[in-house]
Each structure stands twice: as C-alpha cells, then as structure tokens.
Design a protein around this nucleic acid. Structure first.
Lengths: 343, 343
DNA sequence: TTGAAAGCGCTAACAA
DNA sequence: TTGTTAGCGCTTTCAA
C-alpha cells in the first residue's frame, strides 16, 4: 500500500534510522546522504505514518476542541482562535460538537483518550454533570473555556461576565435609566449567575433598588427573549431600560420591541451581550458587551501547551475583560429599530 | 502511564489476545473469562490505544471533512449530516477549515494522509487549483461535496444548481416578470455557471430574450449584492424581477431594495437561493431554492463508505434536487420588506 | 556519521 | 475456548 520508511531506505540505499533522522532533523546526516534520502522520499511520495510515530514516541501533535455547536459565530470564533494558535505550533485540531449533551461529550472523551491526543480544550456540556473528570483521571491535559465545572480543578479561560454586566448596567443608569429590566438565561451556568450578580451590584452601587419583578430568566432561545419582552411591556412593571444578557435572547427581544413600536433608544434604552452576527442589523442602537472569543481561543491553547509541557502550575481561572461599546446616544436620523447596511 | 492491554491481561490472569477478543467481540470467550476481563478493564479504567490498533489493523475509524468555513450555516449543516451518518457507523469526524485556501487545504491533506484516516469528504478549496489529486495518488478514498474538481475523477455529491435556477426563473416569469435580472457570483465555480445557464435557459424556454445588461456577477459578499442591486435600480435597465443565486448576496440585495423603498413582491418579484439563516428575516416575501445540505452530508458519507469498503464503481456525480419554496404571492398585510418573528 | 536491535500497544495467523 | 508468535511503521537506545 502506502510507502513506508523501509521503502524509502531501500530506495536511498541507507538504513531506516537514517531516513528517520532526515525526516525529523535529528542527529547527524551528511549533506549527500540527506539529498539521497530526500530524493527517495519525493519519488515515492512518502508520507510518514503518524500512528506509528505517535505510538513509538508517545507524543501526538493533535489537540481536540469540544464545542456545544459549530453553528453559531460565538463558538466558531473561539475555534478560529484555537486553530490559529495550534497551527502556529504545528498542531492539528480535532473539532467536536457536543450539542451540550453530556452523553455525546462523554463519548468524545473516550474517543480522544483512545487517540491519545496531546490535550483537550473544552466547553463543558454541563457545569454540573460534565464528565470532565474522565480527562483528569487519565491525566489528559485540558483547559476549560467559557464554562467551569465546579467538581474538577483545572485551568479555565472565560470572559468577565460580572464585569461586563456591571459596566452595561452602570451605563444604562448613567444614561438616566431608573428601572432597568434584566433578560437572561436561567442560573444553571456560572456566566448567567455572574451577569445577574453584576446587574444587581451595579444597581445597588448606584443607589437603586433591585426589583425582582424586573428580573426575567428563561431558556437561551429567541422565542424566549421575544416572550419575556412582550410580557415586560404588558405586565405594568414599566422598565425604562433593558439589559439583555445573551445575544440570542436579544434578537427575540428586539423583534418584540420593534413589533410593539418601542423606539430604541428614545423610548427604551437597551444594552446587551453581543456574540451573534445576526445582531448586526440591530446593533447601532444598542450598547453592547463583546466577549474576546478569538483571544479566549488563543489563550486557552497557550495554557494547554504549558500543561502539555508538564508545567506544574496551580490551576488558573483566567478572566478576560469584555469590550464595551456604548452606542445608544440618541440619533434622530436613525431612530427606527432596524438598521440598514452601510452604503 | 495509561493502562495497556498487558496490564489488563495480568490483572485478569489471562493472555493479551483474550483481552483483545473481549474488547473487539471477536472469537470465542467464555462468559466467566469475559467477566473477569471486563472487571479488570473497569478497575484500570483501560481505554484501548487507537494508534496501536490502527497501526496493526491498517484500519482507522476516523474520516475527515474539509469545509471552506465553519462560520456559515450552509457548511455547518453539511457537517451535521456528515457527523450523524458517520457516528451511526461508529466513525469519528476530523473537521477542518480550508478558508478556500489551497495552501491550507494541501497542508490538511498531508496531515490526513499522515494519520491514515479512512477517507475524506471535501469541498475543494478551488475547482481549478485544488490539490485533490494528492488524495487520488495516495489511494485515499474521497468524496467531493458541492464543488467538482475537473482534473480529478471521483464521486461528487451536489445540489442541482441548474434545475434550481430553472425552477425559480420560470416561477418569476410565470408570475408575470418579463425582465428578470440575475445577481450571482463569478463563473469560476461550477455552481455559478450552472445557475446562470439555468436562468438563461428558463428565459429562452419562455420565449424571452437574454439581456446581458441584466446579468450581474461579482464576489460572494453582502456588499456586492447591495452594490449590484443599487446599480440595477439606477442604471435604467428596469428589471421587474430579480433572481439571486446566492444567499449572502441576497442579504445585501434585500437591504438595497428595502433602503430604496422597493416593495417585495408588489414592486419587484424576488427569488433567491437560500442557504443562510440570516435570511430568515426576509424570507416570507421571496421564493427560494433550498439545497438539501444535511442530506448532501449524509449521502456523501454513504458513498465514501462504499469506497472505503473497496467497491469498484464508476465515479458518480450525484445531483440532488433543491427544495423550491414559492412564497411571493402578494400579501397586503405584510408588504414591507422585513419580516418580524412570529408571535 | 551511520546502523542493528529492541520495543511502543495492539491484533492476524496459527496452534493447542 | 485460550494462548504463542510475529509484526504493523516508527524511533530510542546502544554500538560501530
């Protein structure tokens, strides 16, 4: 079948090990021998068998990245960061979708352990029920991104959800809001809890009361954002601003505002987490917190490589600041709820 | 380090091969022995080394999928189809982004050949300059999706671009259009050529002339769609319908129509290829051709497995029909250019 | 500067 | 029903 190192050695009239030395640039090889070997490699179109190499060296130049889905820009941008950083070090990335399904996650962990990948970067499928401990028990180096499994000690790279929520909420209050509603996901994830906490702390710091009737939590779906905002507008709680903790919710929320004729920012100030390019059509009228997804990807790979190299550092919880975009200054020319592409 | 089959054998008091038989369910093993082995596997948390297994069996249970990008739903839906079908056969999928960069594609081919994956499903980075022949020369089974490299014989799975263009163009003409503009990508790709051909043939079949001034080609970017439509509206060629051959272009095109106050479908009939969920906000007023991306993924895997199994079939160019959605019936209640989420 | 021998962890082929 | 031997393709000793 495919050419082996033995075929190359015979063709070049040298021993196996000499070919190996040429391929890996290890040990001494004379220029003449090297040339002969390289010619043989080219003639036979020889590509070294990574399986055999990995088996012998107990090293792999592949890492894995587990994401909830590859259908949203938030995750794919992380993937780009991971790939770019890995590629710059000569590593390939094995990309896996978990669908936030711990069963699927667990199956992937098995596969990846079986392949003896060098390390794993993962967005745990669940913060409570993740099987992340499997990696820990098998001494597989890993770094968590965006979420943090409480029961497993290990490196984490994530955005500053608390700080982002504080910044946006404070901004809304500074712009005059007194009744800021909170629209976000259920508290099952650390980020959600952090964002609620940031929102509440920012209100209190401004001397405002936290009104539970203004805090609305639900699933991470457009329909949920839509339904919550419709209800907020109808239930008489009368918010004068809305902080939306997730961009998928924001799309639904903005549709609800547009549909009911609420003008942003004239009638309602809006600030939102912004992770989804589908929000592009709305963003000019909204202040946003943007997570450094690409950087999160790159930095998690850097951390992973420290672990692969065997560094015995204490686990690090790396929290990266969000980029805050203040954009709800009233603009008379563009007070509608939807934006058009720039000409 | 990690437990090996030898450790399991010693622990269970049997030979290596017996453990192997239990793991792979090959050959005869008594229930009692099997139980002993399984207990040892569980105690040691043994996970078989796939590298060693692949090396010995010359088989891999991994296939690779090369896509231009994972940031667009068109491609990720294909990926889902590939993953689901592969998983149902116990295979893992190695996902790779090429960015339509033939250099990157070529590097991935090398890596994948090095890993001796079982097969490759690929959207060639270029139809003219792809390095696909590398796979062919190394006898690596492969299937092309969506694009077709002319210089390499092999299986292809793609949507019926010609048929889709015919159907949508015919629909516009049947609805009364006489001057149908074509907005699409440059003819460098087979799909683009097929769509132009379908458009032209449908016009001729209806007894209409093909007016070159109505055919506008460009890059696959929103801005291009926007600019082309602005120009179409200003240049005096006076189209009464627009066929858009790509959904990214369609987003820009629709923004241009909305911005200039052209109402769909009252002032202009629009039909478009529809591959991008960002179009959801516009779709109710537009007829669309939808490619069976998920099915393309699944079917390409099925074909690939026939090749992996060694079937000596002639290369197949599998062309799947598009789903055609006719949706531009005039609707007085919703004649604006943007749609809102359903309540 | 080059090579021979051994072995990474697993399984095919044969034997008992 | 279980075990022994050999070897997949490569690289790490050690020796020349």
């Amino acid at each position: 079948m495919a050419a082996t190192i033995k075929d190359v050695a015979e063709r070049a009239g040298v021993s196996l090990i000499t070919v190996s030395r040429v391929i890996n640039a290890t040990g001494y090889v004379s220029a003449a021998t090297r040339a002969k070997v390289q010619a043989a490699i080219a003639e036979l179109q020889y590509i070294p068998n990574q399986m055999a190499s990995s088996l012998r060296t107990r090293q792999s130049s592949t890492i894995a990245l587990l994401l909830p889905t590859i259908a949203e820009t938030f995750w794919t941008t992380i993937a780009r960061g991971v790939e770019d950083e890995a590629e710059s070090r000569g590593y390939s990335v094995f990309l896996c979708n978990t669908d936030n399904d711990t069963e699927k996650e667990s199956r992937y962990f098995d596969v990846l352990l079986g392949y003896r990948v060098a390390g794993v970067i993962t967005v745990p499928a669940s913060e409570s029920a993740s099987q992340l401990h499997l990696l820990h028990e098998h001494r597989m180096p890993f770094v968590q991104i965006h979420r943090k499994v409480e029961s497993v000690a290990g490196d984490v790279v994530r955005g500053d959800s608390y700080g982002g929520a504080v910044a946006l909420t404070k901004h809304l209050v500074d712009a005059g809001a007194r009744r800021v509603a909170y629209v976000g996901g259920f508290r099952s994830l650390l980020n959600s809890r952090d964002r609620v906490a940031g929102y509440e702390d920012a209100l209190r710091a401004a001397g405002l009361e936290v009104d539970p009737s203004l805090i609305r939590l639900g699933t991470f779906e457009q329909q949920t954002g839509y339904a919550i905002v419709r209800d907020l507008l109808q239930s008489g709680v009368e918010p004068d601003a809305i902080f939306i903790a997730n961009s998928t919710l924001a799309i639904g929320a903005l549709h609800a505002l547009i549909e009911t004729g609420v003008r942003i920012p004239r009638d309602m100030l809006v600030a939102s987490y912004y992770d989804n390019s589908a929000l592009d059509d709305f963003s000019p009228f909204m202040s946003t917190a943007i997570q450094p997804t690409y950087e999160m990807g790159r930095l998690s790979v850097r951390r992973l490589f420290m672990r692969i190299a065997g560094a015995s550092l204490p686990p690090e919880d790396l929290i990266l600041p969000n980029r805050i975009m203040i954009r709800n200054a009233f603009d008379a020319d563009r007070e509608s709820g939807t934006a058009l592409l720039p000409a």
